[in-house]
Amino acid sequence: MRQIVLDTETTGINPKLGNRVIEIGCVELVERKLTGNNFHVYLNPDRDSEEGALAVHGLTTEFLSDKPRFHEIAGQLRDYVQGAEVIIHNAPFDLGFLNHEFRLANLPPFDECIGGVIDTLVNAKELRPGKRNSLDALCDFYGISNAHRKLHGALLDAELLADVYLAMTRGQNSLGMDIEEETSSGGVVLEQVALAEIFVLRASSEELQAHEELLNGLDKAVKGTCIWRTPIS
């Protein structure tokens, strides 16, 4: 399975007010392993960032002035994420901005070119109801170092979120289970679980004899048949 952990930085919180995407960071996972095939770009929004947003990401208008516009990289981003399951923390925010940017570029919405979305904020709230579930809080909870995170950055946050997601879902692969998805003729996604091979180490004849002698001693102690000889129903 190919998954893309994605994060954006923006000039503000509402695309309907003219705010734009200024940074995109993507980290690729294939079969839950980091591949190093990442996607990262800064963008010129042709406007200033709002004061609150600038305090979060620190990307100044001057720094972004020579960067490409979104429409110049839209095709590259679309090809990169095509068909992948996308992992986002607070997905409605990033998807809202990316769909808006794709419309401005006269392209179909971003979420039509991906193969599904996992919102780690939703997952975290289910696992930790009533707790703080920001990315920083989850890094602390799962023991992931974010000491180098002084300001928000899309690629850095995507890398941290990839570690958080793998830690958050580690139990889903316990006992070495490999999960594959298969789409039925009705379009319903089914999960097939293949159990790992189990190796059986049988007792030697000496060990069996010692075990029998131990049970005989227990029988004698209880003046009957000890519980360990009772068949399991």
Rank of each mutant, 00 (worst) to 15 (best):
V81E: 03
Y42F: 15
L98A: 06
E180A: 12
L54N: 04
V27G: 04
I232V: 13
M168Y: 08
E207M: 12
A147L: 09
K125M: 10
I87N: 00
G18N: 06
D111E: 15
L166V: 02
L29F: 13
T8R: 09
V81G: 09
F141C: 04
E206I: 05
L43I: 15
S185M: 10
E62M: 06
G176A: 08
M1S: 12
G224C: 10
Q192M: 11
D136Y: 00
A91Q: 10
K125V: 02
L98I: 04
S204D: 06
L104M: 07
L59P: 09
E85I: 07
K150M: 10
L201Y: 06
I88C: 00
L17W: 10
V122K: 14
G58L: 00
I198E: 13
Y42C: 08
N14R: 14
K67N: 06
R229V: 07
G143V: 08
I13K: 08
L218S: 00
D48W: 03
T8E: 05
E28S: 15
T61V: 01
N133M: 01
H148E: 15
Y42A: 05
I118S: 10
V5P: 08
K220R: 14
G25H: 09
P231C: 02
L161D: 06
V222C: 15
P129D: 11
G58F: 10
K33V: 14
D163K: 15
V86S: 04
T60P: 07
Y142M: 05
L190D: 02
L29S: 06
H40P: 02
I179Y: 05
L160G: 00
L107K: 13
S145W: 01
I144P: 09
L195Y: 04
K33C: 10
V222F: 07
